[in-house]
Design a protein around this nucleic acid. Structure first.
Lengths: 233, 233
DNA sequence: GGCTCATGTAAAAGCCGTTCACATGAGCTG
DNA sequence: CAGCTCATGTGAACGGCTTTTACATGAGCC
């Protein structure tokens, strides 16, 4: 266990010693509990055991704290996507799907980061650092799409990788936003968000002419192709 | 022009006469300008020319006002989608695409409604009326999907309409959320959100085995099918 | 040991949401 | 038209939040 300077709790001198980190941590807790709107600067200060003015030594204002969190979120997001993509191993298509699942997993398991990144109403493009982090995360999807595009069946026009990447991103984001977080306020589904997204991506890839059936022995668009949404009995 | 009780501006007696409506209107203005988080109850009251306590005669609290706006938003949304769908005229596929475009148009032209409906962090399922309005809007997409599913090419398994509807919804919502509003903070695109979504939907429909080429004379998945994202030169 | 500057505090101003007792006057009742 | 009533608006007040300012503390360096 960590020992000293635990959570701002225990006896500490005039100086906190690690306030910036403690504030970020507290903010994450609060945002995941009450959403980015419900989070207050004062609460975070209280949780860290300092006065309401102390945070201003580390963040220009409340928005900058949220931006910092979004920043870290994009970094973790990038790392998660990179790991999921795993440079296309063992095969491009299944790695591609893993990326979609990772997107959903991130939205579900890190709702505070996800909120800060996508739902906080921050002007993303006004903050170059933040923008860059977001671009780096998207670049993973972009790279994956590039590799996939290169596999386009011969004889068919090669789809633009950028467009594919944007499509995949919007699907993942749409599913995550609408149905992603179990706890919060959403809608009942006949299937899990993961399955929903997987079917969506598979149908989309098939629309591009990729072989997406589980058993890659068969050609696409032949006699009675099985639907990617599950076999009929 | 309207004449009396104009905008809360002019001389009015002790009673406003139409405060509820004026508040909703003011809130719409404010939300579209500063986002649902930036909107304040007091500001709306000021804009309507009444004291900060007056709104409480019409709304239990700030959240109820936002919920009212979301409610109206869903109603307008439903009506817009209904109109776009036009009962599947002149043909199912093109009507289906019109629905997608209508989704984007709504997000762009009514950002305040859109924010209140999808980005305000309201617990949608805690408000039965709101939930019902949202269901009615989704029902349009659902009905369109149903009609489309019935057109599935013979010999192929018929896709579940509910799943199709959820897919289309998530695509539309994803594109709208990520790239939808021109003014606000988003990302640069190599194509318009409308074109992006149209291509996405067409590829998806093709993946389901529908004939989506512009010229419906040709069968799908034949020699050198043209990509739905635009012809190569 | 003493200086300096980053870091934290206290106090205050201004805003917001919300409540409560009270004021007003629109519309009904007779 | 007189009078009553109740929906609707007001003013003042409370507590909380954000942010600023002047001041306090003490960690790190000479």
């Amino acid at each position: 266990m960590s020992w000293r300077k635990d959570q701002g709790r225990a006896e500490r001198g005039y100086h906190h010693g690690n306030l910036k980190e403690a504030l970020l941590q507290a903010a994450l807790d609060l945002i995941s509990k009450k959403g980015p709107a419900g989070f207050t600067f004062a609460d975070a200060a209280r949780m860290a055991g300092v006065s309401p003015a102390a945070p201003y030594r580390h963040f220009r204002d409340r928005d900058e704290l949220i931006a910092s969190i979004a920043q870290r979120g994009f970094e973790q997001f990038e790392s998660l996507l990179t790991q999921a993509w795993d440079d296309g191993r063992p095969d491009t298509v299944s790695a591609f799907e893993r990326v979609g699942k990772a997107y959903l997993a991130f939205a579900r398991e890190e709702p505070a980061f996800y909120s800060a990144m996508f739902e906080s109403g921050l002007p993303v493009d006004s903050n170059p650092t933040l923008m860059a982090a977001s671009e780096r995360a998207f670049a993973i999807i972009r790279a994956a799409a590039e590799r996939l595009a290169a596999l386009a069946p011969p004889g068919t026009p090669r789809p633009p990788a950028m467009m594919m990447a944007l499509h995949i991103w919007s699907m993942s984001h749409g599913v995550a936003s609408l149905f992603g977080r179990g706890d919060a306020a959403r809608r009942k589904l006949p299937m899990s968000p993961e399955d929903l997204l997987e079917a969506e991506v598979l149908i989309y890839l098939r629309g591009l002419g990729f072989l997406t059936d589980r058993n890659p022995g068969t050609a696409a668009a032949d006699e009675k192709p099985a639907g990617p949404w599950g076999k009929p009995k």
